[in-house]
């Protein structure tokens, strides 16, 4: 069975940096990325604002990724794209699936850098129909920025996560209407920069203490019944698309079966947003590189 010192799972900012850190520390490294491209979510982030801390520049996501990828490719690390890690076993082996086949790898250390998934609207248990036209902000971003698609024309945003705010700006810039952004808290979430540059600069109508009570429309969504949490007032908001920015959940699925009394085995570490949600990618890169280079 093939053996590596470090197995890195995920080819986004964290995985790329952890793999580079480990490779530059003289270790044999295998990085597995399930998508076709390295860079992970950076690839769909066409807005600027990446790299201020790390490079002193204002880069787009793909530009930021382009600063990381060549270094890794020039290192001794082995990189497999379109390769999923199906399982991690307590005997420090991993089962890999790719177009070339299935293979089992033995490793000394593993860094899980699988990123986040988005909290879905479906999990909220909201009443009403189940029509087309409801997207998480990240899925909408992927469809728009990587697929070149449109998700709809009159868009309602639920939740004030950063990606939702960035998408609100994008929708307005591309000639779509953002009907409103609903937030159940008494303040808008996300980073101050996004509130200023995405919401305020584009005069996005923000309704605080407001949530969605019911989805309306068969086939495609035609609106929602909104509710003010303080007054209880309910009213209809018409839209043809609902984009949700409800927050990110670290995707630790792969290590779930390895937990012993809530503890990860000593050979496994989490990195980047898979460990905890980070505000900026620059700090992900720093931490992940250090984790890859360190002895543990």
């Amino acid at each position: 069975m093939e053996h590596v010192d470090f197995l890195v799972i995920g080819g986004g900012a964290a995985g790329l940096s952890a793999a580079l850190g480990a490779a530059e520390a003289g270790r044999s490294v295998l990085l597995c990325e399930r998508g076709t491209l390295l860079g992970g979510i950076l690839n769909q982030c066409l807005h600027e604002g990446f790299g201020r801390a790390l490079f002193g520049e204002d880069l787009t996501g793909p530009e930021f990724a382009a600063r990381l990828i060549p270094a890794l490719q020039n290192s001794s690390a082995q990189v497999l794209t379109q390769t999923s890690v199906l399982s991690l076993s307590p005997d420090q082996t991993a089962l890999l699936s790719g177009r070339a086949g299935l293979r089992r790898i033995r490793f000394d250390r593993c860094i899980l850098a699988a990123g986040c998934r988005e909290k879905t609207f479906a999990s909220l248990g909201i009443a009403g129909t189940r029509p087309a036209g409801i997207f998480t902000a990240g899925t909408a971003q992927k469809l728009v920025n990587l697929g070149g698609h449109s998700v709809g024309d009159r868009i309602l945003i639920l939740g004030s996560g950063d990606i939702g705010q960035i998408m609100a700006r994008h929708f307005v810039e591309s000639g779509r209407a953002v009907v409103a952004l609903l937030e159940q808290a008494d303040h808008v979430g996300g980073m101050a920069r996004n509130r200023r540059e995405c919401l305020e600069a584009y005069r996005i109508p923000v309704l605080l203490r407001t949530t969605v009570d019911e989805i309306l429309g068969t086939g495609r969504i035609r609106g929602v019944t909104a509710r003010n949490l303080d007054t209880g007032r309910r009213w209809e908001i018409s839209c043809d698309t609902l984009v949700t920015a409800l927050g990110l959940l670290p995707d630790q699925t792969l290590c779930r079966s390895l937990l012993v009394k809530g503890q990860l085995p000593s050979w496994l570490r989490l990195s980047g947003n898979c460990e905890s949600v980070h505000d900026i990618v620059d700090s992900v890169v720093r931490e992940a590189y250090a984790l890859g280079a360190a002895s543990w």
């Binding site: 029509p131 087309a132 036209g133 469809l143 070149g148 698609h149 449109s150 998700v151 709809g152 024309d153 591309s174 779509r176 068969t218 086939g219 495609r220 043809d240 698309t241």
Partner: peptide, 14 residues
């Protein structure tokens, strides 16, 4: 479509 006629997944093309 998501589930047949009247349920297009995407919006009109840019």
């Amino acid at each position: 479509t998501l589930d047949g006629e009247g349920s297009p997944v995407l919006g009109a093309k840019y």
